[in-house]
Amino acid sequence: MNYIDQTVVMKKTNTRRLKNKLAKGMFFLSTLFGVVVLFILIVRIISQGIGWIDLDFLTGKLSTQVDRAGIMGAILGTLWLMVVVAPVTMIIGVSTAIYVELYVKNSKVKSIIQTNIANLAGVPSIVYGILGLTLFVRLLDFGNIVLAGGLTMSLLVLPIVVVASQEAIRAVPDHLSEASYGLGATKWQTIRRIILPAALPGILTGAILALSRAIGETAPLVVLGIPALLIPFPGGIFDTFTVLPMQIYYWTLDSSLVAEYANLAAATIVTLLVCLFVLNATAILIRNKFQKKY
């Protein structure tokens, strides 16, 4: 009474194993696709842009003449933008995370705040641009200054900082705060002296990721009406400004008129990518250096 014919099974097994191998190859190629595209993108942009990067380009003023154009104004604008975004998102983001994780007791309130943060993270960046345009540029009448752009960007990247900080705070083991309470520390003392220092690496990593998102975003600033004209270098957060992505945007658009603008755009992209690389490398360094000690 043999229900299973071994020879048939063996035959079928061979085809099944072959299918598995083919599928594995296909899955691997799919994964490789991303790697290859990234490689092409980077090689292509670097080869197009690298020849245009020199000290004059990095420190020069914007110019309509292709070989005299520089991006110092955009670099400064990006830096000033960070000066606004970094503290604003850190203060609001970390405070929100502390409040949600450590103070809110009502689980319903907590879930409302969480859902809200998750939804904000999914709002298209251009909608933040419209909010910024309506609120900061028009209603509060800031105009196209760093502060308006920075506040808009801060709202945009806030969810990143909140979520990262929440995770970092949650990862601090309870036994540390218990030890602190056991010594008669108040809640805020425990938060400030024990929980926040322990969560700091995670918080900083999140903040840096948020910053790198902010300096690469373009759409909200386009909506705010940030120009890429011949404006003086910004010297503070109340000055009009442009940023690297805006510069890339205009040069790319105009490359159909003057082909060399595409090279300038590529050179600017290289500059932007280097900035992002430095920021992300810092985040990874922080993450590795302060691997959990408890």
Binding site: P173, H175, L176, E178, A179, S180, Y181, G182, L183, G184, A185, T186, Q189, R193, I194, P197, A198, K293, Y294
Partner: peptide
């Protein structure tokens, strides 16, 4: 809790120096 100290099941020193651990209570 200032008058009643507590020692826990698992040793739970703060991620600070030895000195920092002892000085934590007086400091707060």
């Amino acid at each position: 809790r200032t008058r009643v100290g507590m020692v826990f099941q698992k040793p739970n020193p703060f991620p600070k120096s030895i000195y920092g651990n002892i000085a934590y209570g007086p400091k707060i």
